[in-house]
């Protein structure tokens, strides 16, 4: 019985090492937070578009939109900014996303100036079917954005189903985003 006490430190330590090992293997990233908004309706917003439309605009691009515009179809909401360097990393992925995935992507320029956001889209291309300006960042806060880029998947009923923090990669899109999009598109 007395001897047993002396094994306690070792036992606790082994548990700790296993737990560290699992934490490291699991790709644990302390900087990624789960969204508190999953399963909740998209927050109410009505944002204006940029003053000047991006040159790669096309007839379909809507300038400015509100949460009601998102109802009725599965849609990706992407928060971006011209000052955000990871957004440039993500941009080619977004550019390649729309047609292949058949899911509309709308962009909200977070804490950005109209001409800067448009300049960014003119330079790198416009992947969005609709662009809106969130200059004050209030809508971003309502979504629970804590660092751009962030991408939200919204279902047909306007419920937030998924959030991805950080630049989207082709792998993340194929593994996480698109399967979720398909499921939501097929459900009523």
């Amino acid at each position: 019985m007395r001897r047993f006490l002396y094994i306690v430190p070792l036992a606790l330590f082994i548990a700790l090492v296993i737990y560290f090992f699992v934490a490291m293997r699991g790709g644990y990233d302390p900087s990624t937070l789960p969204s508190a908004m999953i399963g909740k309706p998209v927050p109410t917003f009505d944002l204006p578009g940029p003053l000047v439309p991006p040159s790669y605009a096309g007839p379909r691009v809507k300038l400015g939109f509100s949460n009601r515009d998102l109802l009725g179809h599965v849609v990706l909401v992407n928060f971006f900014a011209s000052w955000c360097i990871p957004c440039r990393v993500e941009h080619p992925v977004l550019m390649g996303l729309g047609p292949a995935a058949d899911v509309p992507v709308v962009g909200i320029a977070y804490k950005d100036k109209s001409q800067d956001a448009v300049g960014f889209l003119n330079e790198y291309g416009n992947p969005y079917v609709a662009v809106a300006m969130d200059e004050g960042g209030r809508t971003g806060i309502d979504f629970g954005v804590y660092g751009v880029p962030e991408t939200y998947l919204i279902d047909k009923h306007g419920i937030i189903r998924l959030r991805y923090v950080g630049p989207l990669t082709a792998e993340v899109v194929a593994r996480e985003i698109l399967p979720a999009v398909r499921t939501l598109q097929q459900s009523p």
Binding site: Y6, L10, F13, I14, M24
Partner: peptide, 17 residues
């Protein structure tokens, strides 16, 4: 470092037990 940790601390605690 985790392996180092496991060997150094685990070994010493085993010896302790």
């Amino acid at each position: 470092i985790l392996v180092l940790l496991a060997v150094a601390i685990g070994g010493s605690l085993l010896l302790y037990a």
